[in-house]
Design a protein around this nucleic acid. Structure first.
Lengths: 346, 346
DNA sequence: CTGAAAGCGCTTACAG
DNA sequence: CTGAAAGCGCTTACAG
């Protein structure tokens, strides 16, 4: 058991089966073995079989590090998420990992922490690791930096609409999601519907506010700024926003929170004031987090398929890598009615 | 903008600043530059300065891939988690990433899915990627496989007590955590305390059951098997277990769920039957997930520092890598009283 | 279809 | 203290 990992130059790791050994065992050159591995040339049936046998016999596994250095590919994909422990993105990361692993790639996850500088550092780190491509989830990268990056490798971007060669971007229809959530409340007879908004630095926050207003307008309900409170997508901000709302004295019968996390926070504020959901106020969120189903009461919300998001991101990047142009998009948001919403005054 | 990543052998990537260029610019050999980078030899002040300047001027960043191939180190650490989207481990992964990044390492996260085969595949994948060490969070790896792995590289293991050269393992005190949770309920006057257990395949489940029984015994309360329901640490299992409990007709005034996720599920079962927490039944969990604070009602629970866990895992692995013997352990579990528990019959 | 050769960007014994 | 050289395990133009 040697702790030292140092090795003399040229000394092969003990027990390591190399491509050269496969070549020797099957009586061909390393080049030929390499070509079989990569499918980069037609090889005679006979040699192919000999090589396959040797690979199986020796238990050869190609070394991704060496492949990376020699071939310029590492079979690894950089994934920049804002926080690896986000309840929403966690599900997406899971899906990305599943798809990538299934297709022989590895994912390198790094957290951008909703900070442009951190994100730039993530890009540098990933670049140094020679990832074959990057997936940026809801990043803050500027258009310039993004274009530069796409000049080096394919990039998939979520949460923003950008286009260009080597780039694929897609997003949920945040406007529509917010619209149907609000419409749901309106259809239950609510007229005084408060809105807890997300951080306006994100375009999705703006879209959701627009969706809320559009639904109101469609129902000829006057938009009331006093019913809109600012949050930042975190639970605590939902709690604070709802508390401010309550303290303001403005009457309302329902709350639409721009995401489930803020809805959970709002529920706590209501609970603290002795108000019950949905008896006293109806509450609806967006995201359909795994936790929404097991909240008290189970939360009505708009399903945004995080799993779909991750899957689509991984698949489109692989298409880009293969020189194809992805075209798939995310499914439309859909309302999930649970127990937190009820007809007004019932 | 070239999509093709192919490169002739020997053709350097455009714009890539290499160690050789730094050497040329500072008038020394590549070996010397390498030694400075790695601190592997004393170099004269004069050359050191020239090299530092050249590195800064050219913006040289060492290539981890090449370093890995040549030096046998990749500065990357494999992290096997059971599910990257776990609310509990998510926090730990975050901490691992933070510490590792801070110290110049990268984390490669893979999910074992609570499955021994998947986990073995994760190990192979990570080995092929030549990680310098591995962190296995609550793995199912057998003792043999673990010892073999530790023969190749340092390993940090959580959720199990194992020891050996190149291995560091630590765990929470699950027994004590369960004991203080139960004691809390007992101190509030509860005597008929139901227990929703975790999957007995995990040693922590067994420890928690033991802790529950020990507290009961200390208080001279008879252990009642009819009040113990089996779960699997997921929300849905807590819901199902609590429903079975309710349907069984066995009287109880409090529930201790072996983790917060099952406590959330149990709360839903109670809610569905029209029972209120804590008015009708008190509820306590274990973990202190971020969501516990924003549950309705905010959940009393036992804090298990997931962040601490991740931090300690990363730091101990780095110590192992440096040839040191880690000795730090996790802080003791501590009770966090919120709104879901109340004195019986009050 | 296939091999010999050069090269990826580093590291490290070896020999001053 | 420092350099020249060999080597890590592959890939890919080049030349049959």
């Amino acid at each position: 058991m040697r702790k030292k990992r140092a090795q003399e130059p040229g000394k092969t790791q003990a027990g390591k089966v190399t491509l050269g050994m496969v070549a020797a065992a099957s009586g061909v050159s390393p080049s030929t073995v390499s070509r079989i591995l990569n499918g980069s040339a037609v090889v005679s049936q006979e040699k192919r079989e000999a090589i396959d046998r040797a690979i199986a016999d020796l238990g050869f596994v190609p070394d991704p590090i060496a492949r990376g250095l020699a071939g310029g590919r590492t079979l690894s994909i950089g994934v920049i998420t804002q926080a690896i422990d986000s309840p929403f993105y966690g599900v997406a990361l899971r899906a990305i990992e599943e798809e990538l692993t299934r297709l022989g790639y590895s994912a390198l996850f790094v957290s951008g922490n909703w900070d442009a500088n951190d994100e730039a550092r993530c890009v540098d780190l990933l670049r140094a690791r020679r990832v074959d491509g990057m997936i940026v989830l809801n990043g803050r990268l500027g258009d310039q930096a993004l274009a530069r990056l796409a000049g080096e490798m394919p990039v998939v971007f979520t949460g923003r609409q950008v286009s260009g060669a080597n780039i694929y971007a897609f997003d949920f229809d945040h406007f529509e999601g917010a619209r149907i959530a609000t419409e749901h409340l309106l259809s239950l007879g609510h007229r005084r519907i408060a809105f807890i908004a997300g951080d306006p630095i994100h375009s999705d926050s703006i879209e959701r506010l627009r969706g809320y207003r559009a639904a109101l307008e469609d129902a000829r309900v006057t938009y009331e700024p006093a019913l809109v409170m600012q949050g930042n997508y975190q639970e605590a901000s939902g709690l604070a926003a709802c508390t401010r709302l309550l303290d303001s004295g403005a009457p309302f019968t329902a709350i639409f929170a721009a995401n489930d996390q803020m809805a959970f926070g709002a529920a706590v504020a209501l609970y603290r004031k002795g108000l019950r959901v949905p008896d006293d106020v109806s509450l609806v969120g967006v995201d359909n987090l795994p936790a929404a189903e097991h909240a008290i009461p189970p939360l009505s919300t708009v399903h945004q398929g995080a799993h779909e998001l991750g899957r689509l991101a991984a698949l489109s990047l692989l298409q880009l890598l293969a020189g194809k142009v992805p075209t798939d998009t995310l499914p439309a948001p859909r309302l999930v009615v649970r127990d937190s919403t009820r007809a007004v005054g019932r």
